[in-house]
Each structure stands twice: as structure tokens, then as C-alpha cells.
């Protein structure tokens, strides 16, 4: 998932200057056209359609759909879920990357596989597992009921499901980066008398900040947009347990298409902002990784 900005990492014009190993102009043009057509049909058109449909009944209907109390409540709940899930996963990601990259220990691979697992699991399963633990007939169900606590069909369940599906994002970005950076900068800081916290804050953190931010952006986009897992645990109680994506579904199923697309357009906008931020960060993050890889290569040579 760590995408690469090709146009930034390779000085673009190499191809043109080397006639011997490129294709004929017509073929190049055809391939570019085919690729762009594919991206256009599958990505651009749906994106454009979201905004077009959102405004199909005019500005006023658009604004009305967004300012309606249920919509506002969905916004708030989405922000709460992301606001809890992202920081939790950031702390986890940093801790996991620190332990996995700065030390050697047995069972490392097991932990790495477990960290990857939420990416491989269907969102519906992500919801299901929490229902099985916390639901009324789940492991802790009776106990929760006794103490008048509800997790499933309530906000805590939504937060948990969101945490699960966004669990690997930060750790996955940091582990390769910190692996390549090695431990010598931290060791240098320690020989100079820095404490553990000073070493982390003044040496490690600045060198991973772009990667960290990159992970946070991706984590946040998924947290705000998650549908399947949240849908399973939410119970779809309007104005209570509806996040933005669930609100879109409800409106759509009630044939309020313009309103559904209006709310969807907010999420689409979030996606576009995410992509812009991501492209920018990728450049910075990629540079850090290349430098680290460069240093690692130097180390191997000698």
C-alpha cells in the first residue's frame, strides 16, 4: 500500500531520450489512452457522478440534507469514532514498530502476522467477532446486561469495529521505515547522555514524522469511511448509532437519492483531500525511506 510517486522518484524524461528501448509513438499513445480510459471509467466518472447527483436538486436541497439533525449527529459520531480510533492506533503503531524494529526477540513474526490480519479479514467478520464477544448472546453479553452496559448497537461497538479495521495502518507504515533506519542514531543519542524519552522525542520522532503522518492520513480516511464492520455492530438507530456512511445507506434505501449523494459528497471530498495530502506526504516519506535505504546500503558495502 505504500504507493510510490513515480513522477517524483524517477526524473521523468529518461524515456524520451532513449529511443532504443521504448515503444513506437502510436503504441505509447494507445497504451496511455487505454490506461486513462480505464482510470476514467472506474474512478473519475463515479467520483464526478457523486457530486453531480448531490446537486441534482439544487443548492438548497443539498444544504438541507447536510444540516438536518440526523446528518449532524452522524457527523459527530463519525468524528468521535475516528477521534478515538486514530490516536489509539497511533500509540499502538509507534509502540509496535519500536519493539519490532529496535530489538530482536522470539515470536516477532507472529506479532507481525497478527498485525496484518485485520487487512485480510472481511469487514463483516470484523463486526461479527465483536458481536460474538459483547452481543447479548456473546461471551460477555450477560455480564454487560447485568451491569447495564451496552457495547453492541451502541457507540462503544462502533468505536471498537473502527479500531479493528484501521488497526494496521500506522504500524504498517512505521515498521519498514524504522527497520531501514536501524538503531545507530538512537545509540548515538544515548552515548551523548540522552534519556530514553529524549532519544525518542528528539531523534526518533523527527525522523519518522512523515511516515507517521502518512499512516495517520490513511488510518483516518478508513476510520471515517468504514461501512461494513460498523454496519454490523451499529443497529442502525437513526440519530443515535449512525455514522456518515450508514446515514448514506439509510437515505439511499429510503429513495432520498439527492440527500444520500449530498452526504456522500462530503465523504468523497474527504477522500479527495486525503489523496492530495497523501501525495504530498508520499514525497516526504519516500525521501526519508530512500535516505535510510541509502544509509543501509552503505553499511552493507563495507
Amino acid at each position: 500500500m505504500s504507493g510510490v510517486m513515480s513522477s517524483l522518484s524517477t526524473p521523468g524524461n529518461v524515456v524520451v531520450s532513449r529511443r532504443a528501448v521504448t515503444e513506437a509513438a502510436w503504441l505509447r499513445g494507445l497504451l496511455i489512452a487505454l490506461a486513462l480510459a480505464f482510470l476514467g471509467v472506474f474512478l473519475v466518472v463515479p467520483l464526478v457522478l457523486v457530486f453531480q447527483e448531490a446537486f441534482s436538486k439544487g443548492w438548497q436541497a443539498y444544504l438541507a440534507a447536510l444540516t438536518e439533525p440526523d446528518a449532524w449527529h452522524a457527523v459527530k459520531l463519525t468524528l468521535i469514532a475516528a477521534g478515538l480510533a486514530v490516536p489509539l492506533n497511533v500509540v499502538f503503531g509507534v509502540a509496535a514498530a519500536w519493539s519490532l524494529t529496535k530489538f530482536h526477540f522470539r515470536g516477532k513474526q507472529v506479532l507481525i502476522t497478527l498485525i496484518d490480519l485485520p487487512f485480510a479479514v472481511s469487514p463483516v467478520i470484523a463486526g461479527l467477532i465483536y458481536v460474538l464477544v459483547f452481543g447479548s448472546r456473546g461471551w460477555l453479553g450477560p455480564w454487560l446486561e447485568e451491569h447495564n452496559l451496552s457495547i453492541i448497537y451502541a457507540v462503544p461497538g462502533i468505536v471498537l469495529a473502527t479500531v479493528f479495521v484501521t488497526f494496521p495502518f500506522v504500524a504498517r507504515e512505521l515498521i519498514p521505515l524504522m527497520q531501514e533506519q536501524g538503531v545507530s542514531q538512537e545509540e548515538a543519542a544515548l552515548t551523548l547522555g540522552a534519556s530514553g524519552w529524549q532519544t525518542f522525542r528528539r531523534v526518533t520522532l523527527p525522523s519518522i514524522k512523515w511516515g507517521l503522518l502518512y499512516g495517520i492520513i490513511l488510518c483516518n480516511a478508513r476510520a471515517m469511511g468504514e461501512f461494513g464492520a460498523v454496519s454490523v455492530v451499529s443497529g442502525h438507530i437513526r440519530g443515535k448509532t449512525n455514522t456518515l456512511p450508514l446515514h448514506v445507506e439509510i437515505l439511499y434505501n429510503e429513495y432520498q437519492f439527492a440527500a444520500a449523494f449530498a452526504v456522500a459528497s462530503m465523504l468523497a471530498l474527504l477522500a479527495v483531500v486525503t489523496l492530495v495530502a497523501k501525495s504530498f506526504l508520499e514525497f516526504k516519506h519516500q525521501r526519508d525511506r530512500e535516505r535510510a535505504a541509502h544509509a543501509a546500503a552503505r553499511q552493507e558495502v563495507s
Binding site: 500500500m1 504507493g3 510517486m5 513515480s6 513522477s7 482510470l39 474512478l43 473519475v44 467520483l47 457523486v50 490513511l218 480516511a221 478508513r222 471515517m224 469511511g225 468504514e226 461501512f227 461494513g228 456518515l244 456512511p245 450508514l246 448514506v248 445507506e249 456522500a264 465523504l267 468523497a268 474527504l270 477522500a271 479527495v272 486525503t274 489523496l275 492530495v276 497523501k278 501525495s279
Partner: peptide, 14 residues
Amino acid sequence: DALVDLPFALPTAV
């Protein structure tokens, strides 16, 4: 190039 990641960023419901 940036657009390729749209499916990662766009909520699936949308």
C-alpha cells in the same frame, strides 16, 4: 497517479 489510490480513500458505501 494520485487518483489510483481513490478506492483506498473513498468510503465503500459511497
